[in-house]
Write a protein that binds this DNA or RNA. Structure first.
Length: 427
DNA sequence: TTCTACATAAACAGCA
DNA sequence: TTGCTGTTTATGTAGA
């Protein structure tokens, strides 16, 4: 996307990507639904940099997008620490919802993988860097990763980047720095700056990321997104599993997030979710705000909400990202994210300071009046809201309903999909 | 056409 | 000194 000079990796990768039977085919592997721990130890980011050395075919199998879709995102939504911490080959609710979790999903018996599917592996991931980072972090047992491991994870799961110019690393760092979804955690005390900070996902923004995932479209994957009329079979790629080629389903997300809520033990509230001693409990009800109403996006500043209401499909993530250079330039950067910025200024997240607290004096960014005006409901407000126990109950109820809905969703889903495919066909 | 999200590049600083 | 990490700014592209 960049200028010609800095040709975007996907353009560049056209060549390398094509050479990429190497990397691309790497991904075509047996990724039975959930990658067994034994087979995919490297699926754990812990293993990212550690295991890469041993590389090997095992490693290569990890790049299976199917696995990614099925396992990874399943993990995200569940958000449980068990995800990466221990093998969680068990079927998730999501897994169950659509079909047979036990069904061998073996895309890599890959003759069943179409060339288009393989191309997916070779081509640029349909995820933004933010999402990639999110995935990487979420996959880590501790929900914290150093940049290096994030690189590794991305490389591991998206071979595309192995052939991409190293600029993507810059982008990753850029995202980490800029995106409020990610928070820097010191590896050890007194090591605020310097090398090797850990990065975690700010639970406050986690739903945003989920939303972003939900809204992520996979145009290239539509080829295998066609609604199967028959139940999933071993020979056919799993039907949906979250990212399976299509945009995520609201019910998936919501139900999954609901599960997160349910999984969360009340009282596990850490001042700093990234506190090393307090494993990131992303499922904290008061941190993860979920609504059964997809329209309700608590994660956004009201500004974003407005935007979202007017722009149905704008990426949620970006709004919490840099907010877009927009046309607020010449002070582009933070302009759009001022809403969040102002939240930081709320200072309810003291550790946030570490970010701007670098050597360079934080340039005074005149917060656009719009931001301060449009964002009355900041994190604090949300917390106040969500801290209510009754809300917790409501959430649980909602979770139950959502799960129920998710369970019976399939038929509706089919309808939806057929409608969608019709729509696509029309195009 | 406008606006937003995102990607990319690059400069710069701090640290090991 | 070098390389990595982190921050920030600038700019371009794509999509809605």
């Amino acid at each position: 996307m960049g200028p010609i000079i800095g040709m975007s990796p996907d353009k560049k990768a056209e060549t390398p990507g094509m050479q990429e039977e190497r990397a691309g085919l790497r991904g075509v592997c047996r990724g039975a639904g959930t990658l067994p721990e034994a087979e995919c130890g490297a699926a754990s980011p812990l293993a990212t940099s550690l295991d890469r050395g041993s590389g090997g075919s095992e490693d290569e199998e990890l790049t299976n997008l199917n696995w990614l879709h099925e396992n990874l995102l399943q993990n995200f939504t569940l958000g449980g620490p068990g995800v990466a911490g221990g093998a969680q080959p068990s079927a998730s609710p999501l897994f169950d919802i659509e079909g047979d979790p036990g069904a061998p999903q073996n895309p890599s018996s890959s003759s069943s993988y179409s060339s288009s599917q393989r191309d997916l592996l070779k081509s640029k991931p349909p995820f933004s860097f933010s999402l990639l980072i999110y995935m990487a972090i979420e996959q880590s047992p501790s929900k914290r990763l150093p940049v290096k491991d994030i690189y590794s994870w991305i490389l591991q799961h998206f071979p595309y980047f192995s052939s991409a110019p190293t600029g993507w690393k810059n982008s990753v760092r850029h995202n980490l720095s800029l995106n409020k979804c990610f928070r820097k955690v010191e590896r050890s005390l007194g090591k605020v700056n310097g090398k090797g900070s850990l990065w975690c996902v700010d639970p406050e923004y986690r739903p945003n990321l989920i939303q972003a995932l939900k809204k992520q479209h996979f145009p290239a994957a539509h080829t295998f997104c066609t609604p199967p009329a028959s139940p999933p079979s071993a020979s056919s790629p799993p039907r949906h599993h979250f990212l399976q080629g299509c945009s995520l389903k609201e019910s998936d997300i919501d139900a999954a997030t609901a599960m997160m809520l349910l999984n969360s033990a009340p009282g596990h509230h850490h001042a700093n979710p990234c506190e090393p001693d307090s494993p990131l409990d992303l499922s904290q009800p008061d941190l993860v705000l979920v609504s059964s109403d997809p329209k309700q996006d608590h994660n956004y500043s009201s500004m974003t909400l407005q935007r979202c209401s007017s722009r149905s499909s704008s990426s949620s993530l970006s709004s919490l990202d840099e907010g877009g250079p927009g046309h607020a330039r010449p002070r582009p950067r933070r302009a759009g994210s001022e809403g969040f910025h102002s939240e930081e200024e709320d200072s309810d997240l003291g550790d946030r300071d570490e970010r701007g607290g670098h050597s360079r004096p934080a340039p005074h960014r005149p917060s656009p009046s719009s931001s301060s005006v449009k964002c009355p409901a900041g994190k604090r407000a949300r917390r106040e809201l969500t801290a209510k126990p009754e809300l917790d109950e409501e959430l649980k109820e909602a979770a139950g309903s959502l799960l129920h809905l998710a369970g019976i969703r399939t038929s509706m889903e089919l309808n939806k999909r057929s409608a969608k495919s019709k729509k696509l066909n029309r195009k």
